[in-house]
Simulated scan of single mutants.
Amino acid sequence: MWRSSDERIDEKIKIQLLFPIISKFSQIWRLIFYTTTMKHIFVLFSLLAFLQACQTPESTTKVNYYYDLEQKVNEQIKLLKSSPVMFQKATFAEGRTEMRDINDISWEKELAFFLHANINKSALRGLYKETQMTSGDTLFKTYEATNPNLKVEKLIIGVSKSTQEFWSVQAKISSDNYLYSTQKELKMYCSNNKLQSYYIKGRQKMIFSDPEYFEIKAKRK
């Protein structure tokens, strides 16, 4: 249907007159939506705060599923840092042997493998079989992995039967994926709650490369 120029102009004017009304309505709608949303958010946060206040705080007490090796190793690290002592260390790698005396070093790094042997973790609960045997005054606690995918395959802890003093640890650790594989054998011996010696033997192989072997022996002087 043909419309005159005046009619088309009138239509444009009507539309332009509607813009303020539409804009005002849009502002009112946004205000209503914002107010309602904020009320909902406030109610939600109030409810969450109430539920949080009603919850019983979680216990911070550490639960021991297995022997706490991490605690014992950290105790030795703390002693070595507070009262430095000299150790004679021998390192065998790439067909070469290096001998040197050590005392003022980063014991956290030096004994890191022993911290990695700790299995006293919630995620590992029930995944190790524990057996015990005695030899004289020594009680040996042996933990063996029930899952072949676990990194710590075996852990043997030696403690005094009479005093529960920590004497020794032996561990086998392995890790295997499509990029590399590693195997490590660890030994640590203590006397009078003081580190006397430790031993680390390992094999590592990267993809497309030959395996590498290393061995570390250290003894208190």
Rank of each mutant, 00 (worst) to 15 (best):
I200V: 03
N149C: 06
R8P: 01
K81G: 03
L51A: 12
W107P: 00
D104V: 11
R96G: 06
M1N: 14
R100T: 13
K62D: 01
K129H: 08
S26G: 11
D10M: 07
I21M: 05
Q183K: 12
H116D: 14
P211R: 10
T146P: 07
D10T: 05
D210S: 13
I200A: 00
A53M: 07
F114K: 00
Q76N: 09
D10C: 05
F208A: 07
E144Y: 02
S175N: 07
E75I: 09
K201E: 03
F92K: 07
T131R: 01
K187S: 13
M99I: 15
L48I: 14
I21W: 05
D210F: 05
F87K: 02
K81E: 02
G202K: 02
S162P: 07
F208Y: 09
G126S: 01
G126H: 01
L69P: 07
K72G: 04
L124S: 04
Y189S: 08
C190Y: 03
C54H: 12
S160W: 08
E110K: 00
Q88N: 14
Y189H: 12
T36L: 15
I28K: 09
Y178Q: 13
F87V: 02
Y65E: 00
L44R: 10
R100H: 13
A123P: 04
R125Y: 08
S83E: 13
D6I: 09
T56Y: 06
T36Q: 11
F19M: 12
S191N: 14
E212N: 08
K187Y: 09
R96Q: 15
D104Q: 14
E144G: 02
F42M: 10
T142Q: 07
R203M: 09
K14V: 06
K14Y: 07
A112L: 06
Y67C: 01
L155M: 00
E7I: 04
N120C: 00
S175I: 04
I157Y: 00
K81T: 06
